[in-house]
Nucleic acid binder design. Structure first.
Lengths: 151, 151
DNA sequence: AGATTCGGCAGGAAATTTTCCTGTTCGCGC
DNA sequence: GCGCGAACAGGAAAATTTCCTGCCGAATCT
């Protein structure tokens, strides 16, 4: 389960990570296998759960979400059952949710249209999950979503 | 430049964000325009920079990078010119780099194979960018890379 | 008002790509 | 030696993308 790749699979993952639209012929040329062999391996990688999806990267500013922030959250009552990720899942402004080993319980990455919307979102987060929040505004994103290179 | 979309473009972005492999016919059905019209709009979105790329999502554990962490960095000498993002760009374990408005100057998201590799990476980061680091280990990722929905 | 131009869309043919099937080779166990 | 299974190469058919042409409506000019 943890490791599931030979060298060719790793190469395929590397190539298709950089460009999800690469054709089978492209991948075939990159890894030196026939088109059909590459296709079979791709299918296997998908069904094994190594490849979990294909996403289009969009410029957040261009689609009206120029303001990003990290929001750390901490339950108000540590005794309560903690299912904050579920409780927050419906908030589509939240792009990611990780539990972490720091002071807070979770860290969220959020994207909104304006400071006013951020205020509103933080209120929603507090209300939905019964948490305190500590938010850190992103001033500039130099890079993100860089491909994960197989070890 | 900030806003560049009508309702149909927004719908196209929404659909293709969820699945970068959706065919033009799929998108055509979703937005109610002909295939060729959708294709023309997609091209325009790409050339305008609204769509910045297509990525394949891979399971970090499956490709040997089960350990993720946020690394906040602060320059040792605030007087020096600060181009940490450039200085760190070559470290492929870094998936994202944002400048932030908190105590630290930047926050990085990194993925590595093991605690030992994390130690090594942090050393590299400190050496490459002359910074202090404060790292927060990710215990679990509930969701990430959720599509950005056009406002 | 009529004519003209321009942008965006629909439809269709050609080229490319994906899908699926078949045959071959290699490694392994009987 | 022989059969078996997995993985790959090659090719035909289906699906998709690409590109071209014509149409329609809005805006402009005369």
């Amino acid at each position: 389960m943890p490791v599931l790749d030979d060298a060719i699979d790793a190469a395929i993952v590397r190539e298709v990570s950089k460009d999800a639209r690469a054709t089978l012929a492209d991948l075939s040329a990159a890894v030196g296998l026939s088109v059909s062999a590459v296709q079979a391996r791709l299918r296997r990688l998908e069904s094994r759960g190594v490849i979990t999806g294909y996403r289009t990267l969009v410029d957040a500013e261009a689609v009206g979400k120029p303001l990003a922030a990290f929001v750390e959250i901490t339950p108000l009552d540590p005794a309560q059952p903690d299912n904050a990720p579920e409780l927050l899942e419906h908030l589509t402004e939240i792009e990611a949710c990780h539990s972490i080993a720091g002071d807070a319980s979770y860290i969220l990455l959020v994207r909104v249209a304006s400071p006013r919307h951020l205020e509103s979102l933080i209120r929603d987060i507090r209300a939905a999950a019964s948490v305190n929040t500590r938010t850190t505004v992103v001033l500039q994103t130099f890079y993100e979503n860089r491909p994960i290179l197989p070890a």
